[in-house]
Design a protein around this nucleic acid. Structure first.
Length: 628
RNA sequence: GCCGGGGUAGCUCAGCUGGCAGAGCAAGGCUCUUGUAAAGCCUAGGCCGCGGGUUCGAGUCCCGCCCCCGGCUCCA
């Protein structure tokens, strides 16, 4: 048989040859450094036979940054971790141990709980394994045999996995440790040059909180110590961008234990909020949205009608109002439904787009709160578009386009997730075909990378969720665009068509920032606090050099303010160097130093970061960019 | 909510096996009249997260609670 190499040359091999044999046929050094085979985007273990005509690429220990090469290294590292834990903690049960984005983990069921300090001795044990050296053997076994072996060892989680495992079922053995595993794995442990256990956490078996909680040990591994050092440095750098650190530091907001999960916005943070609010208002205005204001609290009947109580009751704050139960809204839909239903509606009014940025209160579980990214007061840039069936496609497309425009404005990169029909859907398959296709087309048209989550849509319609990463690479849902016919019918809403009869009404729920809180959190990390000029809380600071420059500096600030610039003077009795340093730490876009050498026709402008120029006041103001 | 780690001055942190609570920066005062990332001197600042317990004595040990951090679950 023959296989095709990356440079398109063909390699003649005996039938059934493995990746390792292919590597050996090319050169002994390649065989020594090989870690896995990639063919058509899939990865294969070196010990598995190749197919005739297969296009293959052999990855080696020198492909240190290749995601597949790293994954295999980390997967093998996870097995070393399991081996170590099994030796150190008799009676432990092992669950699963996959590679993940920045490392790997393995889940265990310990007879006695372990603590963080235990990681050190486990890591030592792994180091010992590494110095002894380990090699991986692959073995394919019958399901019954696999089940028997794990049952004998009392590895109940593995028995469960065997039931669900796809054929062929394979085992990998290193040292005296054998694990059920699809592979691929390294040939031996020599390429693992750097390994570190990074954390300890609880994790539910199979991700279901009804299942027992296991102990997850996180780690990471690299082909070189330098790569590990670099990775740790990147993590440190990311921590410096953390909005929970920068927010209070830049005097944007803080959290108080008197209202957990609800930020208190300082003047600086409020400036940013208001700029975003105005942007929202301008953009919605251009697209035919109408601003509305609806109540924060409603009686319980409303939430039974809307369907929020059956599903979200335990995350809603409830109130006793003179013996009657009320609740604070966790979404704007009910108010907008009531507003729409205040009088009969004609097809001539549709589409009708109501927008409102009202605070929503959600009683999120304490353990889930996370700075601005997960809060109990959520201010969505919400809107509900009431429309006919024929208008759905255009309205969805327009929402996605607006989201894309918005994100590009900030240089943010989003990814989308399309959630399709669930098992308990209502409506016909033809309707779902139509609406799912409409949503997918809108995403594709706007060139947003996306994945499909089959069955994750609401029972009344499919949805698009838009995600972004924080500084540490964690994904957060931002915008959401959801199609719905259920809510209007729950509130008995229809419209009168040209034929003078009532018709089924559709509504598109959409938020594009997602929430102001989360969006600002992401922006802080995205810019690392260096906001673009139009968002910067203080845009220009003027520093008089000596006392007798204060008067003129004050006049310059006055003129800047008249021109709409957020300017202030820093006339504190500190050296110029100190005041510049502080302006830099506060990340103010422009500093103007004003002394004997300057005049209004010739100002010394220092841009954030240190570049200096000389400009007249008028030229400087003319060069400032207005908000988008 | 669950697993693990934390909470000491406005901020960053030290405080060994229980024995008078500390540093740097920030703040306030004074001196200096200042030129593109930190002038000098002085001063003040603490319910050691909250509540209970053990002890002659608790920041330190034990129990409960709150909040924060890393995850899980959940979610904009």
């Amino acid at each position: 048989m023959r296989v095709i190499l990356p440079d398109s040359t063909e390699l003649e091999l005996p039938d059934g040859a493995t990746g390792l044999e292919a590597a050996a046929a090319i050169g002994p050094k390649l065989a020594e450094q090989a870690v896995l085979v990639r063919s058509n985007g899939e990865v294969k273990d070196l010990r598995q036979p190749l197919d005739d005509g297969e296009r293959i690429q052999i990855l080696t220990t020198r492909d240190t940054a290749d995601p597949d090469a790293l994954a295999v290294l980390r997967h093998s590292s996870a097995h070393l971790l399991a081996e170590a834990v099994r030796r150190l903690y008799p009676g432990v049960k092992i669950a699963i141990g996959p590679p993940i984005d920045n490392g790997f983990y393995y889940d265990f069921d310990f007879p006695e709980p372990i603590v963080e300090d235990d990681l050190e001795r486990i890591e030592e044990e792994i180091r010992r394994e590494l110095s002894e050296g380990r090699a991986w053997e692959r073995q394919e076994v019958a399901r019954e045999e696999a089940r028997r072996r794990f049952a004998e060892e009392d590895e109940s989680y593995k028995v469960e996995l065997v039931e669900a495992a796809e054929e062929p079922i394979s085992f990998y053995t290193q040292g005296d440790f054998t694990d059920l595993c699809r592979g691929p794995h390294l040939q031996d442990s020599r390429p693992i040059k750097a390994l570190k256990l990074t954390g300890l956490a609880g994790a539910y078996w199979r991700g279901d909180e009804k299942n027992p909680q296991l102990t997850r040990i996180y780690g990471t591994a690299f082909y070189s110590q330098g790569d590990l050092d670099q990775y740790l440095e990147r993590v440190e750098e990311a921590k410096r961008r953390d909005h929970r650190r920068l927010g209070p530091q830049l005097d944007l907001f803080h959290f108080s234990t008197h209202s957990p999960g609800s930020p208190l916005w300082h003047p600086n943070g409020t400036v940013i909020w208001n700029e975003l609010e105005q942007l929202r208002s301008r953009e919605n205005g251009k697209r035919g949205y109408q601003e509305v204001r609806t109540p924060i609290i409603y009686d319980s009947d409303t939430f039974w009608t809307s369907g929020h109580f059956p599903k979200y009751e335990d995350l809603m704050f409830k109130l006793d109002v003179r013996g009657q139960e009320f609740a604070m809204k966790s979404m704007n839909c009910p108010g907008h439904m009531l507003l729409f239903g205040s009088r009969p509606r004609s097809y001539k009014e549709l589409p009708l787009r109501f927008s409102e940025a009202a605070p929503l209160h959600r009683d999120e579980l304490p353990g889930t709160l996370h700075g601005l990214l997960r809060v109990r007061i959520v201010t969505q840039d919400d809107a509900h578009i009431f429309c006919t069936e024929e208008q759905i496609q255009d309205e969805i497309a327009s929402c996605v386009a607006q989201a894309r425009y918005l994100y590009e404005l900030f240089g943010l990169e989003a990814s989308a997730e399309l959630s399709t029909r669930p098992g308990n859907k209502i409506g016909t398959d033809e309707q779902w075909d139509m609406t799912e296709a409409a949503l997918e087309e809108a995403i594709r048209l706007n060139e947003i990378p996306y994945t499909i989550s089959p069955g994750e849509g609401a029972f009344y319609g499919p949805k698009i969720d838009l995600f972004m990463d924080d500084a540490l690479g964690r994904k957060w849902q931002m915008g959401t665009i959801q199609l719905d016919s259920q809510m209007p019918s729950r509130f008995g809403l229809t419209y009168v068509g040209a034929d003078n009869t009532e018709h089924e009404l559709y509504v598109v729920h959409r938020a594009l920032y997602g929430s102001f809180e989360r969006f600002i959190g992401i922006l802080i990390e995205h810019y690392a606090g260096d906001f673009p000029y139009w968002l910067a809380p203080v845009q220009v600071r003027v520093l008089p050099v000596q006392d007798d420059h204060r008067a003129t500096a004050g006049e310059i600030v006055g003129k800047l303010k008249d021109a709409g610039v957020r300017a202030e003077v820093d006339e504190r009795d500190e050296t110029v160097g100190k005041r510049i340093r502080e302006a830099e730490l506060e990340k103010i876009p422009y500093v103007i130093v004003f002394g004997d050498r300057e005049s209004e026709d010739s100002l010394a402008i220092r841009a954030r970061g240190g570049t200096q120029s000389t400009q007249s006041l008028d030229d400087f103001v003319a060069g400032l960019l207005p908000p988008p």
